[in-house]
Computed example of a mutant assay.
Amino acid sequence: MTADDQALDAERDAILSALTPVADGIAATFGPLCEAVLHDYRKPEKSVVAVAGSVTGRTVGGAMSEIGMGVLARGDEASDELNYVTRTGNGTLVKSSTMVLRDSTGAVFGALCLNVDVSAVSQVHGLLGALAGLGPAPAELPTTTFGNDIDSVVDALVDAHQSRQRGSWAELGRAERLELFGGLDARGVFAVRGAVEQVAARLGISRASAYNYLSQARAAHDTSTGEHT
């Protein structure tokens, strides 16, 4: 590691340390229905470095969610995602904001995420809407895996992509297989250490086959976007 790299790492550590009491202050201000989570994307398998409040069950040392993986996949092109709504695995309705953290070079290295449990508000809104005859509830919201281990998050993403395909891996054509690997890559799955092996095991294929499909999917993406390595 060069002296410049060491200086950047020290700067990033200082930013995370400075934001830890900010996370505590936000959660204390908005009460038990609010959670603030501080992520260090330099270690995606254990990205959670601070948690204040308890909405999603995150703990320090926990992994990033699919949302974090998406930010990681976009790299320095990532931007803040504000006021989006999702569901946890147990059905809790959560309104969230993800604000990316950048160092002095503009590189994204982490995020401050806010999660607010709005389940009770949604129930009251639905009741009032029904009483007022305002029609059916909005479409089902996506479920986000806020797991404390990265394996559960990777598995959830593989399952979600497979559910959009037809049949099992053996029934998929080459284009569909490449689409699956390309989709997982776009979501940042393969930025996680050991993810290729995990995806291979989940699909019931060899590690070599998984790397081959990933390589082909990336080559196809580079060709379609006009990128060259």
Rank of each mutant, 00 (worst) to 15 (best):
T59F: 04
L33K: 14
A208W: 03
Y41Q: 02
V118A: 12
R218L: 11
A3E: 15
V158T: 03
V124P: 00
L214Q: 11
D103G: 03
G31I: 09
S65Y: 03
N212R: 15
Y211P: 00
H221G: 12
A160K: 07
G61W: 07
A219V: 05
T98K: 05
T59R: 14
H125M: 10
G70I: 04
S119R: 11
L8S: 14
A14T: 10
Q6Y: 11
V192M: 06
K46L: 02
A160I: 00
L38Q: 08
G135P: 10
A36Q: 02
G129C: 14
T145M: 14
A160W: 00
A217Q: 07
L112W: 05
P32E: 15
D151K: 10
A195V: 07
N83C: 09
T88G: 10
V192W: 01
M99A: 11
G61L: 09
T105G: 03
G129M: 12
G182H: 01
L101V: 07
A139F: 13
A195M: 10
G133A: 10
A160H: 04
A219M: 08
L141V: 13
A137T: 10
E197A: 14
A28H: 10
T86N: 09
S65T: 13
Y41H: 11
P142G: 13
G135I: 10
Y211S: 04
G226C: 03
A27F: 00
G75T: 05
R174A: 12
P32T: 14
G75R: 08
A219P: 00
E66R: 10
N90W: 06
G61Q: 12
D117K: 03
T29I: 04
V55D: 09
S96I: 01
A195W: 06
V60F: 10
A132S: 15
P138Q: 13
A130I: 01
V51Y: 07
F146E: 05
L178M: 09
S104M: 01
V158K: 05
P142L: 09
P136V: 08
G91A: 10
V108P: 00
K95S: 13
V37R: 05
